[in-house]
Amino acid sequence: MWCAVLLGCCLFALGLCAVSTQGPHRVWGGCAGAGYGLAAWCAARGHGRWAVRCAVGGALVVPGVYLLARGAGQSEVFVLERAAQHLVRTGTPYESAPVDVAGYTPYLPGAALLGLPSLVLPGPPGDARVWCAVVFLCCLRAARPTGGARRYGRGLAVLCAAPPFALACVVSGVDLPVAGVCVLGLALAGRGRAGWAGVVLGLGCAVKWTVCPALAVAAVLLAGRTRTRRRASVLAPLALGTCVPLAVLVLPWVLVSPGVLVEQVFAFPSGHGRLATPAASPLPGRLLAGLGPAGWWCALVVLLLAAGA
């Protein structure tokens, strides 16, 4: 089974290398394809530990070190670092009048915190990708259930070798902390720790507003643990904990420059900004976006259906 999985990962990586026009994607695809292929050979011969090592080395270590050493990556990395620089210099992570898409920061103000290490740590140690991965792994560590340390270690090694983590970590990293806070926030909610779940998910919402649906899931988890008459008292800490990070990290810039924030965080990514977003992919969302207003409404309906499910 593992041999088949690794061969599938190998085909995915090599396919990405063949069709992508992005340099970092091609680097990752070539290195990861070789690593997965060697890992599949090791798995077929029964060398499980070597299979994991080859997969992690080819998909994460080799391309990650290469791209970090060259200072190459997707634009998201440099957006976070530029936002941090702008925050320190001017007090806001947003440029008031960007002349092109390179000046846009399509994230909420909390994302600038991920770029702050680049101001004090030169070179690869301060790269935003490194700290995005650190936040993600710390969240997974904090979400670990009591016991099962050995199984957790195995699962973490497999996760680091998997394309969804390895590709994101090597080329951009910005979605990793968002996924991490969702995992930790829901784990805390499942354990009944409503206040801390709200704080963690609030921090995620201060980075990207797409974390907001996790708040509904956390509320359902908490409500399911209590009797009807106590649900309001249990959900109140979740709401209060969420509001604290938002009030500290988002509200000041909403009050000072609401127009700039709405333009860069909401209008620009959704295709309704002053400048067109360069984002593109062969996935259904891109096809819907090409349909104009009808596609936008279709995407909204699909999003609401997914949230309801």
Rank of each mutant, 00 (worst) to 15 (best):
L304F: 13
L184D: 04
P293E: 09
L222F: 05
G173L: 08
A97H: 13
V248C: 10
A102Y: 14
E263T: 03
G308K: 09
P284R: 00
G30Y: 07
A55E: 01
A32F: 05
V200P: 02
V301P: 01
G33W: 06
V248I: 10
A189G: 06
C298L: 11
Q74F: 12
G71P: 03
W131S: 02
E81R: 00
K208D: 01
G198L: 14
F78V: 05
C243V: 15
R89L: 06
G224S: 04
L137P: 10
A214R: 01
V199R: 06
G35R: 05
Y66P: 00
L119Y: 06
C54R: 15
W196V: 06
E81C: 04
V27I: 08
L156M: 09
V217I: 05
A84H: 14
G48H: 06
G91F: 09
R191S: 09
V250Q: 09
C17H: 10
A18K: 09
A162Y: 15
G190Q: 10
Y152N: 04
L167I: 04
P106I: 03
L303Y: 05
V99Q: 14
A197H: 13
E76Y: 11
P98I: 06
L38Q: 08
R191D: 10
G48E: 05
T242F: 10
R193T: 06
G57H: 13
S172L: 07
V250M: 10
A34I: 15
